[in-house]
Design a protein around this nucleic acid. Structure first.
Lengths: 210, 210
DNA sequence: TAACGACGGTACGGTTGCGTCGCGACGCGT
DNA sequence: ACGCGTCGCGACGCAACCGTACCGTCGTTA
């Protein structure tokens, strides 16, 4: 018993998927090429081979466009396989991250949006939430699993731990843009394990801001 | 960088320093507010209370303007005091970095320029060179000193070591923008020391790219 | 005191993007 | 066969910047 009001759902004149897809692709390309700051609807439409009106029919502004894109992309989570040891899990995670961060598009767009987040609250919120999810996943799965195995103290500061894991590889690949070999990833994993093992002290007294 | 021609040094009509300073300040402010992508000479001149012509008399383009600014700012090096131990040096370094990265301007401008570097070779080169100097300094002074003390193996991979030191704090403050307490900095320093100590293995066989 | 050159101000024509509108055409359900 | 809403296309007025040019003014130095 479908009670929907077919009152005025349209017939054959519906937003065409192929055009929507083309626009999304064009946004990604433009974002990589000129950045969010210089992104223009005109250029997006031009690149997608589409009229401006077609874009405005779907999204009200370039902010909407980008937020939507981030939402769609952010959904893809890393499969965190259980290798049986903290070192193994960590090395795998770093390898996956390294692979993702070597992609040209990612390397252009991610830092750009992160920088833009500093002045556009909506972007900041969306990215922050995505990052938070990502980091919590790492914390719970990788660290949590290691705690269950007895490899790490239960008092491990997850936030700090995640910083230690994610920070170096992001810095290396996205900031300094220096190539990273597999052997180096392995050694980095070993070093991080050592770091995590001395973190058992856990958070103590209330802290002063720096 | 204001060029001075000595041959026929002009009379009283010389580029005024106060105006140069005003423009520089305006560039920083604009850079923080709208980013490099949206930076316009018009806005800079407006903000500095100066005519566009005054800007063009000193710099040919906004790229020149920014490159000059980066050169001027990058000169300021961190004073790396010798505290007598790797842990002490590291904690001090992290505290100084944390302080620098908490400044609002830095937090807006640095990620923005780093992102822009991905598409503007001149900016990339200048920043890369600055970063390289900075990292080499950390490597030589902090790590080198610890090696002399016998705290670290001489085979320590300096590049990886620096990634481990700088990455986490940059990630935490500039990317996730989460506050960082002094006690956390201390614990992070301890963790990093542990990581560096297991890095003695040094670089081994030739590596495949990820 | 005369010359020089940067000063602020102002204006120029040209380019780019904005967001909206109307046109005729198209194709698909009713 | 009809009507719907999308399609591409083109045009609109408006705004921001671009880079350059020309003013009359001003302070210094030769």
């Amino acid at each position: 018993m479908v009670v929907e009001k077919k009152r005025s759902p349209v017939g054959a004149a519906v937003l065409r998927d192929d055009i929507t897809v083309a626009i999304r692709g064009a946004v990604v390309a433009e974002l990589a090429e000129v950045g969010y700051g210089r992104l223009s609807i005109e250029a997006v439409a031009r690149r997608a081979g589409v009229s401006k009106a077609a874009v405005y029919r779907r999204w009200r502004s370039k902010l909407d466009l980008v937020l939507d894109l981030v939402s769609a992309t952010a959904g893809r989570n890393l499969p965190l396989l259980d290798t049986g040891s903290l070192l193994g899990d960590l090395e795998l995670l770093l390898q996956v991250m390294a692979r993702a961060l070597q992609h040209r598009m990612a390397l252009q767009i991610i830092p750009d949006l992160l920088a833009e987040a500093a002045r556009t609250p909506q972007i900041a919120e969306k990215l922050h939430q995505t990052l938070e999810d990502y980091q919590r996943t790492i914390g719970l799965v990788v660290i949590g699993r290691a705690v269950e195995r007895g490899e790490l103290s239960a008092a491990t500061d997850q936030r700090l731990a995640v910083d230690l894991i994610v920070g170096p590889i992001y810095w290396r690949l996205a900031i300094t843009r220096t190539p990273l070999g597999t052997a180096e990833v392995r050694r980095a994993a070993e070093m991080i394990v050592a770091a995590l093992q001395v973190a058992g002290a856990g958070p103590d007294a209330p802290e002063a801001e720096v």
